[in-house]
Design a protein around this nucleic acid. Structure first.
Lengths: 204, 204
DNA sequence: TCGAAGTTTGAACGCCTGTTCAAACAGGGT
DNA sequence: ACCCTGTTTGAACAGGCGTTCAAACTTCGA
């Protein structure tokens, strides 16, 4: 039956275009949220960035909060993928360095998100719970990574919790000042961050 | 003339009470802004925290933005005072350590502010310019401090700009997770941060 | 060329929240 | 007891923005 075939092709094409549109919206939103915050960003802002009226957004997301939710999910999944990848490496130093560099790359990328820098309290209670749970899992992994480094004698005896906050804070703060147009390049930024956070400032 | 005398006493008392009220408002606002952000904080939130209706706030500040502005000014002045104090110390390591510890103390204190963590774009253009200028002066001082450490051979050869961002980011991020009720104490937090940011994670 | 499904739009609604204002209230000096 | 100043309040207003909806438009296969 060629009718079935063509219909399938058509709907596949349609779905594809729809998903592309959704990605566009998410990226525009992510960029705006990261730079101006969720509440300061209007649907008009997001819509304008992709050349469309705000009402069009409702064909792709039920409401504004859903957009934020997807931003959270997408960026969290990307960052957890990084963590998983890091675990394949040998030493804690290598692993942590990789995580830091990749995290910086993600946060500075046009497509990626600034994982934990997004507003959580703006979400509904249930969604908050889910996002926080995922984020905590990531943070726990990071702490464990640091603990392993301490146990292995690679790192000094630090409080893993505080150390993780130092690292995450430094990285997430990038979203507040980094602009793609700026002079600073993402790659060097990542290595510079990794050097500083791993090796500190002091001469050895 | 005893009338003059008593009037002065009275107005002094009144002024004093007024200033206390203003401080109360600022601290309530600062706390709310820092925890929930400027836009997510309503005047009702602030007013409720000091047991008053939101309209009462207008006797002390012309509008919401003015409250944010004063929060900025107060916390910036406190943090610049810290920087000035640090300059009296001998080595770059001591200076930077002091700045970090005190910065953490300020940001975790009930009364103090989270200096640079407040939303800037919510201010009017002129006020933005002023706040940014002051903030930049502080950041420049911090960078210079780092440069001096590099020149003196105390620090490794880092990009002072990036190093400053790492330090400020780690510290400012505290506002996002630190809660006074929590188990973590401000003092240890400060020294832990200083150790990490100066000495890094790696064993030496 | 037609029709159906997908997409975009403009107008309108409703809520939230910052702001204004006149009226009530409090306190302390005479 | 009275008044003046400073303070607080409730009601009402105004604008912004998220959201709804029916109507117009676009795309693409038949």
């Amino acid at each position: 039956m060629s009718s079935k075939r063509t219909v399938d092709n058509a709907s596949a094409h349609v779905r594809q275009r729809r998903e592309q549109r959704q990605r566009d919206i998410l990226h525009a939103a992510l960029r705006a949220f990261r730079e101006n915050g969720y509440h300061a960003t209007t649907l008009d802002d997001i819509a304008e960035q992709i050349g469309v009226r705000k009402t069009a957004l409702y064909h792709y997301f039920p409401d504004k909060e859903a957009i934020l939710y997807e931003c959270h999910r997408e960026s969290l999944s990307e960052i957890r993928r990084v963590m998983k990848e890091a675990m394949k490496l040998g030493t804690a130093t290598e692993r942590l360095g990789y995580v830091i560099r990749e995290h910086v790359r993600v946060i500075t990328g046009n497509l990626g998100g600034s994982p934990l820098a997004l507003e959580v309290p703006a979400l509904s209670t249930e969604r908050q719970a889910e996002i926080i749970a995922t984020r905590d899992r990531y943070e726990r992994d990071l702490r464990k990574l640091i603990e392993q480094g301490v146990d292995a004698g690679e790192f000094r005896e630090v409080d893993p919790k505080v150390a993780a906050f130092v690292i995450l804070g430094a990285i997430n703060w990038i979203a507040r000042w980094y602009r793609p147009e700026g002079a600073m390049h993402a790659r060097e930024l990542g290595t510079e961050f990794a050097n500083h956070l791993l090796g500190g400032l002091a001469c050895r």
